[in-house]
Design a protein around this nucleic acid. Structure first.
Lengths: 246, 246
DNA sequence: ATGCATTTGTTCGTATGTATG
DNA sequence: GCATACATACGAACAAATGCA
């Protein structure tokens, strides 16, 4: 499938040039000339193809971008928008289940697993005092090999002495907590903010440096209400969006 | 309280100079040497104080800025970050009530109020077809004259024919909906993402252009479950954070 | 680390067509 | 017909982000 050959634009027929370009590109995308994720021609190429000024092309691209059909990245180009993941956050949502519901193959890569002393934010999240011993697990979440999350999990070693060994052997956090006697746990609260990624985060999550991350700090409690985990998750936008339903 | 007198940095001790500067400034801020909102010394002054190159100071300031402890403004200086608002989002949270709970004086500025044709996202949010008539209210939310939100509210005119007049006269959305017979409404879902602000948004919310906004799309329903409002809220980070509790 | 080429983003200015009164 | 206002379109130059050698 190739882009429309007929690039002739009708001037002075009551339809603005940029709107005609929008229609043409929309047809090309719908017809599969530019598949999902593919890069469109550069603005310079498009302005040559349609024999208009680059501004006119930009206006058309801006319209397509606003309506979510394409995504424009400075210095890289314009791309046909790909599917986004809606992470439906509920009290017992588990990342892997959510990925599976989206018909993707979940996987994870452990980046770090060790015992550390809690710094101020971690201590506050776990309700401990700074310096307390905690287990930290940093993990990259993937859906069909596309990174969707980067999470630092923290577990209080005072309450869960065997968690380090359990995490080394168990495939998931749910399984590791079960080995430590936590049969079930619930999300008590989620604090959400956003910031630009550090270079390492951008590389791991395969996202441009100027594209913000969603940051979610989660506190998970056992059935008795005691805190068993404090996690800081980083999600690449707009690839991942969080959906909260009461 | 004055800044640490001891500005000596240890070289070649395994901790980079900029990280030592970070620690020193963190201590100074925590100790109240630089109170909230105060301006830090200029980069030149700091580089003299620590006897390092200005680049090294900048690296330290960048780290503090990333973590939200300070806020750097081109041409003005660096300032100790002010208090942040945690917006606790529940099924019946109202922005003005939340601001009041934070001991701030809520106010709002109507930027736009008119009837428009629904574009695709708005139509999807309201469960209408594109082109349907909707009322759109754009409003800047303020807490003690500090901008905390910029929201585009959309109301279906088919269900709420009198909403435009009601919004012109009523001070709040809750009151306007009450005039149209909606005594109560609930948040059905919130979709959260993030992006960098447009220039207009940055100016209105008084936030730097490289600081991301949290974007929350909310769907509000009446007691019967019908959609009465679809809103797109933009919150400046890290001044505002969203907290979801089930 | 540095520079370079590529690409999008922004801001000037200018000209023209269209709708309005 | 004329004056005005507004959106459209074009041109040029520079800024900023990215990727690569």
């Amino acid at each position: 499938m190739t882009p429309s050959e007929d690039a002739e634009l009708a001037r002075e027929d009551g339809v603005t040039l940029w709107r005609q370009i929008v229609r043409t590109l929309e047809r090309d995308i719908a017809a599969g000339a530019y598949p999902v994720g593919a890069r469109l021609p550069t603005e310079a190429q498009l302005s040559a193809r349609f024999a208009v000024n680059r501004h006119t092309v930009r206006r058309a691209l801006e319209d397509l971008s606003r309506r979510g059909l394409i995504r424009v990245e400075q210095g890289r180009g314009s791309f046909v928008a790909e599917e986004t993941f809606d992470y439906e956050v509920g009290p017992r949502t588990r990342l892997s289940e959510w990925i599976r519901r989206n018909n993707k193959e979940p996987s994870g890569r452990v980046l770090e697993l060790k015992e550390i002393a809690a710094d101020a934010p971690v201590a506050a999240g776990l309700g401990l005092r700074p310096g307390a011993r905690v287990a930290r697990l940093e993990r990259l979440g993937l859906a069909d090999d596309m990174p969707v999350s980067l999470t630092s999990h923290h577990f209080p070693l005072s309450r869960l002495p065997g968690i380090l060994a359990a995490l080394r052997e168990a495939p998931t956090i749910t399984a590791a907590l079960a080995r430590c006697g936590i049969a079930d746990y619930l999300r008590q609260s989620s604090r959400v903010t956003a910031r630009l990624p550090h270079p390492r985060e951008a590389a791991l999550l395969r996202t441009p440096r100027h594209r913000p991350l969603l940051i979610a700090e989660n506190i998970n409690v056992d059935r008795g209400g005691s805190i068993v985990e404090y996690g800081i998750s980083r999600f690449p936008t707009p690839r991942v969006q969080l959906v909260f339903e009461p």
